[in-house]
Amino acid sequence: MDYKEQYKLNCGLAQMLKGGVIMDVTTPEQAKIAEDAGACAVMALERIPADIRAAGGVSRMSDPEMIRGIQQAVSIPVMAKCRIGHIAEARILEAIEIDYIDESEVLSPADDIYHVDKRVFKVPFVCGARDLGEALRRITEGAAMIRTKGEPGTGDVVQAVRHMRKMNQEIRRVTSMADDELYEAAKQYQVPFDLLLQVKQEGKLPVVNCAAGGVATPADAALMMLLGAEGVFVGSGIFKSGDPARRAAAIVKAVTNYQDFAMLADLSAGLGEAMVGINPEEIKTIMEERGI
């Protein structure tokens, strides 16, 4: 199969995940809870971002055995993270037939200059982005899905909001540009002209764009959908809360009915304790600045 055909299929899987919630899980048991609660996919990782922050040190790709256990436990797509630029980790994840690789700033970057050339892989990649330039650079490298970076493991949605707002503002700006102005814009964004032209013509990113980083409540998830996200990743927000199954199910429903505020009120009621969360001023490691 040629690259273009494979890439379309990989973008297609992201299209099937739209309107859904992708949940971080660390064990087969958690994966099952997530699937039963209505997750459209799970992200298998050894430690959720909040614990990565707490533990410090270098964080790497998860143990393939642990990922296989999760693949066995659920029927929905299973994603896993590789370090930015870590070609070998990505190849290992492809070899165990992961459904999507997240080349993620949550793990310690393996390469401080280059990302993985994702076009030479058969397996699809999702990457984080803070603005239109980052998103289009990742798409140029072969990412078939984009998510906001947010600031993972904080339970604070402010950066995800900032990134989604910024991306959408820049897309609106590009749609109002004359074609000859796009050359300069392409230079500033460090992206190919043709890709920027496509954004101008379609008024959106050429791949599915989800929200991630700091989503902790049904209202957070609804907020991101109202801002134009096509789906939501929830990391620490679920399994760092008091009643994960209930909170997960409520977030799933909030993403579907993000415009029904009476329903959101019911979904937000009696969920127990949300993850505690930390403010951006309180954290030492700023993950969003990794891999730009």
Partner: peptide
């Protein structure tokens, strides 16, 4: 539509 049948089936019931 396409998507995840587990999610859609669950939401059909719950909604």
């Amino acid at each position: 539509p396409g998507g995840e049948s587990t999610v859609q089936g669950k939401l059909l019931h719950e909604l």
